[in-house]
């Protein structure tokens, strides 16, 4: 249902956005979200057990946002991610083996063990990396969009960030510049309600972050971030607008992370109540798509179950690959500081 507020924020995609959904699309989106879900759950357990180093910001619960947006992008379209970046990487086409290898700090990892969880990504698939500075990737995505416009190559850029990042100056500077130059870019705010451990109501006056779009003179759209088809529909419209030369769109996807800001164990202090978490889990994006797929007789329950089990097997194999991969050599520590 489309509504518009006084500040021009549009709620949800156009009417009938899910009417023409195909079996192939449901399968693709479902597999995409399951790949993220299972990767994250395994990675979380491996860190908690001490088998893997570093710390993890898990994307579980937010899968529909990355999957929905990335389903309309190509490898040539560029993307910047966040500290919570595994989901974006997987949705953009990153493979399990080099991802797990990177988390294990191995030479076969996407970053050769130099980046780890917070910088993961495949630069050959249009990823300008995960970024551990909140808001740091947003101006970089604007640069990628500038390159698209400069070359006239028809590509677009997408920048993912959280609700907390919209309070940092880099966000304001970047969105304003993209707006004034009509750059082909999608700004996707994954509003999970918390900047780390601080609830949205304690870090901004606004309820809908999409309203910030009005101050840059660009469209702002609020979408249900647990509905992958709705996310995809608003991304389609934003890409069309970008490619037509009309500039950026700010998309706010209302979503939720099931785990803590970092790690898988749960909350150190109860900044959210269990009922809130449970209420969001009831609206789980993967479950929702499975209901749509089976109710419309597009995909059977057995086919959905097969996707889960096939993905699980692929992940277990990738973990073994990562564990058995060579460790980096300290003699190479200065490699790739500079391009020579």
């Amino acid at each position: 249902m489309t509504q518009t507020t006084a500040l021009g924020v549009q709620y949800g995609p156009r009417e009938g956005y899910a009417d023409d959904v195909t079996r192939e699309l449901v399968l693709e989106l479902h597999r995409g979200m399951v790949r993220i879900r299972l990767f994250e759950e395994h990675a979380g357990k491996l860190v908690e057990s001490g088998d893997m180093p570093g710390f993890l910001h898990l994307y579980v619960g937010e899968e529909a946002v990355a999957t929905g947006v990335m389903s309309v992008l190509t490898d040539a379209d560029q993307m910047t991610s966040t500290h919570r970046g595994h989901g974006h990487a997987i949705a953009k086409g990153a493979q399990f083996r080099p991802m797990f290898a990177e988390l294990y700090g191995k030479t076969t990892g996407y970053c050769k063990g130099r980046g780890g969880s917070m910088h993961i990504g495949d630069t050959n698939k249009g990823m300008l990396g995960a970024n551990a500075i909140v808001g740091g990737g947003i101006p970089i995505a604007v640069g990628a969009a500038f390159a698209s416009q400069y070359r006239g190559d028809g590509t677009v850029a997408a920048s993912f960030f959280g609700d907390g990042a919209t309070n940092i100056g880099a966000f304001h500077e970047a969105v304003n510049m993209a707006a004034v130059w009509d750059l082909p870019i999608l700004f996707i705010c994954e509003n999970n309600g918390y900047a780390e451990f601080t609830a949205q109501g304690n870090h901004m006056k606004l309820e809908d972050i999409a309203e910030r779009a009005a101050s840059y003179g660009i469209p702002g759209v609020v979408v249900d971030g647990m509905d992958v088809l709705a996310v995809r529909a608003v991304a389609v419209a934003a890409v069309e607008r970008a490619k037509a030369g009309h500039g950026p769109t700010l998309i706010e996807a209302k979503t939720y992370r099931y785990f803590d800001h970092q790690g898988i164990k749960g909350m150190r202090i109860p900044y959210r109540d269990a009922a809130e978490v449970e209420a969001w889990r009831e609206r789980d994006a993967i479950k929702l798509l499975e209901v749509i797929g089976t109710e419309r007789d597009l995909v059977s329950a057995k086919e959905f179950a097969d996707i889960w089990s096939q993905t699980e097997a692929e992940i277990l194999e990738a973990i073994e690959f990562a564990r058995n991969s060579p460790e980096p050599d300290p003699a190479d520590i200065l490699d790739d500081v500079y391009t020579v």
């Binding site: 101006p139 390159a147 500077e173 510049m177």
Partner: peptide, 24 residues
Amino acid sequence: KDTPIAEQAIIGLGVGAAARGLRP
């Protein structure tokens, strides 16, 4: 191009464009 007074965006734009092979 003249930019807004926005040094983070000026440099960030350069980083992204350079990563795509331009020489900002």
